[in-house]
Design a binder for these strands. Structure first.
Lengths: 356, 356
DNA sequence: AAGTGTGATGAAAGCGCTGTCAATGCTGGC
DNA sequence: GCCAGCATTGACAGCGCTTTCATCACACTT
């Protein structure tokens, strides 16, 4: 079974040339004569030769890989994000090496160190909350580093994201503007980004003169649809007159929506629901879920493009090291002016009425 | 920025020993004296040394990586699957290298070749429908290969899965046994596994003396919640007296459920819905969705364990090369005996009443 | 006819690490 | 007090490839 893997010189011998020539023929076909090229290609096919990327990378100091750290593979957000990275990087001949930090900075440190050991030509990490050690490792690696998902005040190198705080604030303000006052906040996991969305919520609420910590329903457990239902139920039981909820993500919002169905609470008649991320199901839910859309695909896409530009173009950084891609509130059926509407109609962020 | 990366001998110089000794101290601390170990560890920390995995892998012919091919990263099924692989393989010191075949055999071939170029110590591929070339590459790689998700008649090496056809048949029979007759089938993408689920559906239907090709609603587009809603709407408009639908996956089922809400169709009063995969949201939906649970986590977990055993234990294969992990129908609220029930009560597969 | 490119190929070195074997210093047994 | 035996460290080769430089043959110039 474990026969020795075919190497370059095996192919060379078969084609009657040296290994170097085969290497050239494979990497840069124009450098060898047409006749020889054909002979080599045949030898490659016959022997089922697959170049050893490790040896190649070691010799050329070019690994053709990009290291990526995401906090979760479960989350619908990162699915699109990773898809975008693959879409851009693979056609450019780069491999994407993904490691999962499980929303834990210890794991993130390990993931970064592990990836760096593979000598990627760039790193794209989600979030801005790396530990000092992580930051040092990334800085000293001497490769382009992109922090994504959120805008940072002190980026390691490049930073492309949105303000999670502002997005949370805008979502809350959107509900306030509709005339809601008893606006609950449902969130899980409590990773740094969720936290900043909650901060935004709090800010908007206190700006509106409302400061009720009891309106928060949170849990450190990872968010699921079920948890959304549970947290909503808890909140609903605790807060008389609850008229809206801002859910930290769409899974929680979906759970809240189902729980409303289950309890015969009309959405948006009795309660408005707004989610976060605008995952695919939002537009098909009944009622369709209002949500905050984050350009996660574009964020990853741009990160990948910038990284490619830097790698190809002698390491020069773009002028803008920090890019804020903004967010949009996608208004659908799950939010509406309550009976006794008093909202001002003022709008905080770009808004889209989704009628698709 | 691009200072030279620290190497083993840099560390050695700093600690006053040779590079080999450092290598040993790092890999096998017991082999060097305690005093030296401390000195080396300090040097490593001071220099921020990260071993070059490429060089290490090349020299030792042990890459500590496992190649994994999945058809999709978007699909909730593979999220759990990948999580299981990481859960088992990472603690064992292995990296998981994931490539996406996008449900296309051409891409799969490329993915397999690319992964093999990284010299993984084993390959775990989803599905059993590899091309001849893919099969050849995998066989000649001389490493353990596991095909998962589905049981195969002619496995490449190891095979752990379930019978998709039987699962589809059981889901359909479950509906038939409840007394349903006009059972629609909703599916998207039409990958090999969906196709075999449909086969199972057809088989069960013709066994029940029903053969109505117009009961199928399919599309080659990738499945989404929205598509579930659309296909259900189409089916509902076309089939008078439609009393149940078997959806090829839970996203489609969720879309169908929402569409029922939208149209005021009672579930399960008017129509029963059964999904496939039993994703997390099924149990929290309203009404909670009946679904076919596939042990996707266990499947990946076992694959990973077997692979580890083979790698560690001198390449010996387990006795059973083909393992069928079975499936369960998880009965919830979305399916019920129709008004004029006639079902026999016979049950085709292990069944679970989910009251969680 | 000698000089000068130009294109195609090969030889040698080395990427950073590990495997193997050799060398060294030390212990303890007789 | 000498040598076996062990623990510890180092030297050297080589993993499979790319890079660099040398070589060779062939045309084309003057």
């Amino acid at each position: 079974m474990t026969h020795k893997r075919t190497t370059l010189s095996d192919v060379g011998t078969r084609a009657g040339v040296s290994a170097v020539t085969v290497s050239r023929a494979l990497r840069n076909p124009g450098m060898v004569s047409a006749e020889l090229r054909v002979r080599i290609e045949r030898a490659v096919a016959e022997l089922g030769y697959i170049p050893n990327r490790l040896a190649s990378a070691l010799a050329s100091a070019r690994t053709q890989t990009i290291g990526v750290v995401v906090p979760s593979l479960t989350n619908g957000v990162f699915v699109d994000y990773l898809r975008a990275l693959h879409d851009v990087l693979n056609p450019a001949g780069f491999q994407v090496l993904v490691l999962n930090s499980r929303y834990a900075s210890g794991d993130e440190e390990k993931a970064i160190a592990t990836l760096l050991g593979q000598h990627p030509e760039a790193m794209i990490v989600a979030g801005i909350d790396q530990t000092d050690r992580s930051r040092r490792l990334l800085k000293e690696a001497g490769i382009p580093v992109v922090q994504t998902m959120e805008v940072a005040t002190d980026p390691i190198d490049i930073n492309i994201g949105v303000s999670q705080r502002e997005a949370g604030r805008a979502a809350t303000r959107f509900l306030l503007d509709l005339g809601h006052r008893r606006i609950g906040q449902v969130s899980a996991r409590l990773d740094p980004r969720s936290r900043r969305r909650i901060e935004g919520y709090r800010l908007a609420m206190s700006e509106a003169g409302i400061d009720s910590p009891e309106l928060l329903a949170t849990t450190p457990r990872p968010s699921t649809v079920r948890l959304g239902a549970e947290l909503f139920a808890e909140l609903h039981a605790r807060i008389p007159g609850l008229d809206a909820v801002f859910c930290c993500n769409d899974d929680l919002a979906l759970g809240a929506l189902f729980e409303c169905h289950r309890r015969g609470i009309s959405v948006p008649g009795d309660i408005s629901i707004i989610g976060f991320n605008d995952l695919e199901f939002c537009s098909s839910a009944y009622p369709a879920l209002t949500s905050v859309a984050i350009p996660r695909y574009e964020m990853a896409e741009q990160s990948a493009r910038i990284v490619l530009d830097i790698i190809r173009g002698s390491g020069e950084r773009p002028h803008e090291r920090r890019i804020d891609l903004g967010f949009r509130i996608v208004e659908r059926e799950s939010t509406r002016r309550p009976q006794a509407a008093t909202g001002s109609g003022r709008r905080a962020a770009e808004m889209v009425r989704d009628r698709s």
